[in-house]
Design a protein around this nucleic acid. Structure first.
Length: 416
DNA sequence: TCTGGGGTCCTAGGACCC
DNA sequence: TCTGGGGTCCTAGGACCC
């Protein structure tokens, strides 16, 4: 018997599989998974990248994150599907409902990945690997898409196990299997090691996860700080974070968007920031939080980035107050060059139950709060464009920007 | 026609206080 | 009189994840 049993469940090519399953169940005869197909953005809006690809598309050299026109060069008759996030949220929910029938504790890690804790369920469900097959097959047969399930004694190893071979597979990666299954993998495949760290480690002669595992941990800590010790532990399969319910722990809320056209006048920038702020503050209120910090980010045409943030004197969830800060932050940081992308983000969240009236201007603040909640209600019931600020009339800027595609934004919280 | 959008965590340096 | 050292808070930016 093992101390701990954790599963990592990961939908294979999630967006594409979900589109395929949905379309087949609605009378389509072509399975998107069997032709060169991708789910991707809109090149006209300059947000055209590959979000998910079929295996035939992968075989033609198409990669996730690649710009659409490049993917089209590799495959001119590539089938391109626009993302439909509300469908994906439903699929994600259905997948997690099946998992929750078995697991006492489920942690949603992203829209298409979850951890499930099975520690102490041996009497109830028997052999964990058999159970993993049961769950995997039920998702496939009942929902029409496949998942990989990784089984191990902590979250890191369960996740790495799930990555081993895809699709539609169950893998274990227990500590006694590290040498055989884990250590031969290239260093860049380790969770936590990305584009910047891979070449750094390679220059030290660390090419595989095993090379990293065998390094002196103090040397790594000296070279890379705290992070050096973390990745050394990962390489040795050491990780002890708990599987926690995802309800708590949101740290910040932000929306950002690339503009259809580069922009160089302050007024339009302000308007765009207002439309982002509308979405961010609506999501903030929906989450039941107030924010104590506001930040603005600017990406210029040459892709140079700046960000500017400021702590507030008191927390707020009011659109106008947040926007006043956003506008100030923008004005302080903009260098008058052409802007490609703008972002608004709030953090230092605290529960709005603890809301306290400011000492001054009590009446004005109460009025603002009531106005916000009325607008939120209308937008939730009738769509986000049902009520808009007059400043957006006769402008090309959409009154509410951020979140998911052109559809009315569906609150994550009310769907997941 | 270069390179989306949503997050989290860590670090470094400056300000400020004692 | 020429300036130590620790602690904390704040901001900017980088790295990573999906």
């Amino acid at each position: 018997m093992r101390d701990r049993i954790v599963f990592h469940i990961d939908a294979n090519s999630a967006y594409l599989s979900w589109e395929a399953a949905y379309r087949l169940s609605h009378g389509d005869t072509i399975d998107l998974r069997e032709i060169p197909a991708i789910v991707g953005g809109d090149p006209v809006k300059r947000s055209g990248i590959v979000l998910a690809k079929s295996i035939p598309a992968k075989k033609l050299g198409i990669a996730t994150g690649e710009v659409l026109w490049k993917a089209l060069q590799k495959c001119p008759n590539l089938k391109i599907i626009k993302p439909n996030y509300s469908l994906y949220m439903k699929c994600s929910k259905a997948m997690n409902e099946i998992i929750s029938e078995y697991a006492p504790q489920v942690q949603r890690f992203s829209i298409d990945e979850s951890f499930a804790e099975f520690t102490g369920t041996n009497k109830l469900w028997g052999d964990p690997v058999q159970l993993a097959y049961t769950i995997k097959n039920r998702i496939r047969d009942e929902l029409g898409f496949t998942v990989n399930i990784g089984v191990s004694s902590n979250k890191l190893l369960a996740k790495m196990a799930g990555e081993l071979r895809k699709p539609d597979m169950v893998h274990t990666l227990f500590p006694e299997e590290l040498e055989e299954k884990f250590w031969p993998l290239p260093i860049g495949e380790l969770y936590g090691i990305g584009r910047a760290t891979t070449p750094k480690l390679q220059r030290q002669g660390i090419m595989t996860i095993g090379d990293l595992a065998r390094m002196d941990s103090e040397f790594l800590q000296y070279k890379l700080g705290k992070y050096g010790l973390v990745i050394w532990k990962y390489a040795n399969g050491i990780e002890d974070s708990m599987t926690r319910e995802a309800t708590d722990g949101i740290k910040g809320i932000g929306n950002s968007s690339t503009l259809k056209k580069d922009l160089d006048d302050r007024e339009t920038a302000h308007l765009f920031l207002l439309s982002l702020t509308e979405m961010v503050s609506m999501r903030l209120r929906d989450s039941g939080n107030m924010c104590g910090l506001v930040s603005v980010s600017i990406k210029y045409t040459d892709l140079g980035k700046v960000s500017h943030q400021r702590k507030l004197f008191y927390s707020t969830d009011n659109t106008n107050e947040i926007f006043n800060e956003v506008r100030r932050l923008f004005d302080e940081s903009w260098n008058n060059e052409a802007i490609r992308h703008l972002g608004v983000r709030v953090s230092h969240l605290s529960s709005s139950d603890d809301y306290q009236l400011p000492i001054l201007d009590t009446e004005k603040f109460e009025k603002n709060r009531n106005l916000d909640s009325t607008i939120d209600d209308l937008r939730l019931r009738f769509g986000k464009n049902s009520i808009i600020r007059s400043s957006f009339l006769h402008t090309p800027i959409k009154p509410v920007t951020g979140g998911v595609g052109e559809d009315d934004y569906l609150m994550m919280g009310s769907i997941l």
